[in-house]
């Protein structure tokens, strides 16, 4: 029987041994549970005897749980991988790995898979909480599945961001700082640029090219790399009765079919992840002939 990747086995052994993994998972679920409880209390009080109160509570519970879970995945997954490769350098085990028969891809994949396995555990543990929304109604299975796929792709993308910085930096602190920093820049930068763009063109006559299909696709892709915007827009479009897979955009009578933002997000996140993984693997190759700085001999 084929064996698992040795790095994956080692990482899982290390991660799941001791109390830290269970404490992290417990804290994560406690926070989600607490938010759910507080939200339910607030919604139940304000709902009164409204006919559709159950559906409204269910929908809002689902959105809040998914959002909090997404925030936690955005923060935790890069932190899981940011120390993975640079940690080997700090523990002075990096050379031993590189000098073994493990390929750089095996090392990177083992590290990523171990982080994703833990992220998957976190995401799966959210499912019972998310399913509470079904008790109230108002949430479709498609919405839940799209949310789970969105969480998974976010975990993949941000884990590779952490891995990339881990392969480049020389300390875990530096790698974690840069990983979280770049994610914050991305999460805040995209809405900021979108808002600036909107403000500029909202003041005068909108140029013709902003209604072209190319611009619509490009701007759609730009905002769809943001998980909160992509998944939030998807939810809005689903509520408006659109298909879970595509929408028809009609700026000036010309019907333009665009993929649902969550689909665009999945594709873009996968592409970015592949590029970041490729760079990470490149960084793990033996030192090239022209080293940038002198090493103590």
């Amino acid at each position: 029987m084929a064996e698992f990747n040795p790095v994956l086995v080692k990482e899982l052994r290390g991660r799941m041994r001791g109390p830290s993994a269970f404490m992290l998972l417990t804290g994560y679920l406690l926070l989600l549970g607490l938010v759910t409880l507080l939200l339910y209390t607030a919604l139940a009080d304000s709902a009164g005897s409204e006919l559709n109160a159950g559906q409204r509570i269910g929908k809002q519970l689902f959105i809040v749980i998914a959002t909090v879970a997404l925030i936690e995945v955005c923060v935790i997954t890069p932190a899981l991988t940011a120390g993975s490769i640079v940690g080997e350098k700090e523990r002075q085990t990096y050379d031993l790995l590189i000098a073994s028969l493990l390929s750089p891809w095996q090392i990177v994949w083992g590290k990523l898979a171990a982080a994703l396995a833990f992220a998957l555990l976190m995401i799966v543990s959210v499912v019972p909480l998310m399913s509470l929304a079904f008790l109230f109604g108002g949430v479709s299975l498609a919405e839940v599945l799209i949310a789970l796929v969105g969480l998974l792709m976010t975990a993949l993308l941000y884990a590779t961001v952490g891995l990339f910085w881990s392969a480049i930096m020389h300390s875990t602190l530096g790698a974690t700082s840069f990983a979280l920093g770049s994610i914050i820049v991305m999460l805040l930068g995209i809405p900021f640029l979108a808002a600036i763009f909107t403000l500029i063109f909202a003041q005068g006559t909108t140029p013709e090219w902003t209604r072209s299909a190319l611009f619509i696709y490009l701007s759609g892709a730009f905002v769809s790399i943001h998980p909160f915007i992509a998944l939030g827009l998807t939810e809005t479009l689903l509520n408006a009765g659109d298909s879970p897979f595509f929408s028809v955009f009609d700026p000036q009578g010309a019907n333009i079919t665009i993929p649902s933002p969550w689909l665009a997000y999945v594709v873009l996140a996968a592409l970015f992840s592949i590029v970041l993984l490729w760079f990470s693997v490149r960084m793990l190759r033996p030192e090239p002939p022209i080293a940038k700085q002198a090493r103590a001999t």
């Binding site: 040795p6 080692k10 290390g14 523990r91 790995l97």
Partner: peptide, 24 residues
């Protein structure tokens, strides 16, 4: 290869250490 430093993995037993490198 045995470098001039000894790399330690946290939470790893002696047999697991050798098992990992054997697997590698």
């Amino acid at each position: 290869f045995m470098p001039d430093f000894f790399g330690v993995y946290d939470n790893m037993k002696v047999w697991e250490y050798l098992d990992f490198f054997g697997h590698a």
